[in-house]
Design a protein around this nucleic acid. Structure first.
Lengths: 192, 192
DNA sequence: TCGTTACCATACGCATGAGTATGGATTGCG
DNA sequence: CGCAATCCATACTCATGCGTATGGTAACGA
């Protein structure tokens, strides 16, 4: 009958706080990142927090860097290892379309682009993904300029979809309808 | 040598406050909407504000509704009056691409989708625009389902572009590069 | 076992920002 | 002119949330 329903750890580490911060950011936004709220959620008080971190700002910074590390290395290497360049884009689209969870933090950070601390992180992550997309389009046969613009278009569509259907709840698209949308997107944005 | 560089009005109306609120939202986000800050900017104090509005929430609500009214009627009627259905989409894309100012409030509200008051407004506006886009695609020859999905894709690309290049400052695209991107987008997303 | 280090609770101070109370100034109108 | 209604200033209260000070308890090595 404790205040928190969490696994009742006895002692906490800095990483525990960072993970909790990322969870909170994922479903309430960075604006909701308050130390006393986090402490309650972890079943401790502020006294604990200020032992691990000098300030709230420091926690946010650490959490963001931790998130940036986890990255998207696996999916990038897996896609790049595919022999047929033309098959990479459809596979990539279907993959990212069907794992919604990892995008929740990204969607939350998208809404915090006024915050000075998240801007550089998002800039780096988005830039890396954009370059990856561009290279895939090049390998699929587009000339450099076309590849870059198509990558911009594709990534913008991804980001916009997150905002419109994830955060905002437009008419709540169904599962089959979503699959049809993804296939339409593949036909429209993929060369060949 | 007054605190505010504004036109020095002697008396204010509720509409003045709503306009000021929208300006502030446009370049600092809804989170920065504070009554004392607004009052300073208008050269008055809170005493004035609480005569016109019952609460901060009421101001935000009024400002949002005001913004929703201004709407996009002109551009919609202008596009719909074009005789050639196939020419409408390129024209629409070029038009919205070259007037950046009106999108600033929309971009700011996009980042405030955690806020209960902005969600319904954004849902209505986005839904209307999406239906308009869908009808244009239908008139351009796409079958209903294709038209809807293409409209979703196009609008998502629009929203994502706002986030990536407006709010976030990815490598700061140049003017010529932007025009090339728009033309690429027209070629890719437009039938015919 | 004893002390040192790591971890946490309690109780503060302090700044910010919303909302209230009340009185003063200005405008329109009879 | 003079009185109401309109508009605004000043001076509060109150809640929230960051950060600090300080003392307490659990873990671990010598």
């Amino acid at each position: 009958m404790n205040a928190s329903a969490k696994p009742e750890r006895t002692r906490l580490s800095a990483e525990d706080w960072e993970d909790a911060a990322l969870r909170l950011i994922a479903d309430q936004g960075v604006g909701a990142l308050a130390v006393e709220a986090l402490a309650r959620q972890l079943g401790v008080t502020k006294g604990s927090f200020y032992w691990h971190f000098r300030t709230r700002e420091a926690l946010l910074q650490a959490a963001l860097e931790r998130w940036e590390q986890y990255g998207e290395k696996e999916i990038i290497t897996q896609i790049e290892s595919m022999p047929d360049p033309l098959a990479r884009l459809p596979e990539l689209f279907r993959r990212v379309a069907h794992e919604l969870a990892p995008h929740r933090v990204y969607a939350a950070l998208l809404k915090a682009l006024d915050h000075p601390q998240v801007v550089p992180v998002m800039a780096r992550v988005s830039q890396r993904r954009l370059e990856f997309l561009t290279s895939i389009y090049r390998e699929a046969g587009l000339v450099p300029e076309e590849a870059l613009n198509r990558a911009r278009l594709t990534y913008a569509a991804y980001v916009g979809f997150l905002q419109l259907n994830f955060t905002l709840g437009l008419p709540r698209i169904s599962h089959e309808e979503f699959d049809a949308y993804v296939e339409h997107m593949i036909r429209t944005l993929t060369p060949g």
